[in-house]
Design a binder for these strands. Structure first.
Lengths: 241, 241
DNA sequence: GCAAACAGGCTGTCAGGCCAATTTAATTTT
DNA sequence: AAAATTAAATTGGCCTGACAGCCTGTTTGC
């Protein structure tokens, strides 16, 4: 019946405003915030309050405060800000366990996606898949395409997660997914990806998953996603169980 | 090869120290921190730095700062501090989606638990189950036992999560699990739990899951957990799909 | 007895200042 | 002219001191 009164503390209001600016895409990764003294003026508060907000934002992993330089936005919040914050929690977990969690979550996301995806979402998924496959085939002639390929791959999986229409699972997955952008993951994955025949294999698997989701075959989508992630896991960690 | 240099910024060191005290159980939910001025003295910093740390801790959901009263520890961090922080991210998500995520995660935790649980962990699980079942039977004569029952139930499921030995999934699940302690969940659950015959049903299901895990029957554990959560979901949300 | 006023402790916020880190520009050196 | 050095400006990191407002318990006044 009654609405929550606006968070009274200044630093919280500042955190929320900046957080919103990030998720609205008005502040992007790499952008520099105005100097603290300027922020204080613009928000109409003291520098102390600004700094309380900034330290909180830094602890949440949204900005990085660099002495003598400025406060820099660290994340691209348009995909899932909550996911980026969850990623911050994952920092110290082992790569193996992080990847293993994909094996649990993603097949179920595929299942739910087959059940709930809207036509528009399916179409977008198809477009991403097309770009992904195209980029994959270009790698043979141009090894520099590996980076864009991994990015398209990330987006394809993320789109499936979005289609599952479960914000909790999406938050978790987008955190894990975003972790794959990190440098040490890229080197890990590059090794596995480039082995002979893998790209063709992935193309088949991705296409199969997409078709299953599009035609609403929930169980098929789930199983195929499971097999796909298991293949990835094998290719990356060189394990076979 | 080289270890990370200690986080330079004062507020970070303070956050880490307090965070550790919470996860070590030296600071428990409800405890009041010393006044900021005292903290400043004890940490050897200014009150400004203390407040930067406290605002960060509050944003992470670990403490609550009450004007004119003090800074209060908000979580019991001995189960999983990361989980408590993840719970903070869940605050605004719909109860249905939160519960649905259990349906995805817990069966897989049961699966992994059947594969990886140590004898000691199994034994502890058995002891929790025994207490749970005992409390469940006492409810008939003493409706006040509902609260303890739900707490034992929470612990039983959490123990399974722990046995899965995957820190990422455990963090997520313990966050969701801890959410079940919240007031609005308790009322939701109480309604469903107390319907005729449910408690006996749950006892059978719990026991079945435990036996499957103990004897290493991974697939059985997974399926039974899935069915159990689905029953719970039905009883709580009154849905049947 | 009971309500109202009071007092002490604590957080919320501000103002102003100094130091250290880092970038940028200026200056010197090669 | 290019490179290395130095100087200046910018910016975050941190500190001190102060005051208003909130909370709690106690005292005062009826």
């Amino acid at each position: 019946m009654f609405e929550q009164v606006q968070s009274r503390k200044y630093y919280m209001q500042i955190v929320n405003q900046i957080r919103n600016l990030i998720s609205e895409g008005k502040l992007n990764a790499g952008d520099k915030l105005p100097p603290e003294r300027v922020l204080a003026q613009e928000f109409g508060t003291s520098r102390a309050s600004i700094r309380e907000a900034l330290s909180a934002l830094e602890m949440l992993g949204l900005i990085e405060s660099r002495s003598g330089y400025g406060n820099v936005i660290k994340v691209d919040g348009t995909e899932s800000l909550d996911g980026e914050m969850f990623k911050t929690l994952l920092k110290d977990h082992s790569p193996y366990e992080i990847f293993e969690s994909r094996l649990v979550i993603e097949p179920n996301l595929a299942f739910l996606a087959a059940e709930r995806a809207t036509p528009e979402e399916i179409q977008e998924m198809g477009e991403i898949l097309e770009r992904l496959n195209k980029t994959g085939r270009e790698i043979k002639n141009d090894p520099l395409k590996v980076e864009p390929y991994m990015e398209e791959d990330r987006k394809f999986h993320l789109q499936i997660g979005k289609c599952a229409h479960n914000s909790v699972l999406y938050t978790v997955f987008s955190g894990v997914n975003s972790m794959m952008k990190e440098a040490h993951w890229r080197t890990l994955k590059t090794k596995g990806l480039l082995q002979e025949g893998n790209l063709e294999k992935y193309e088949d698997e991705h296409t199969g998953i997409f078709n299953a989701i599009r035609s609403g075959k929930k169980e098929v989508a789930k199983v195929q996603m499971h097999d796909h992630i298991k293949e990835l896991k094998k290719d990356i960690f060189d394990m076979h169980d």
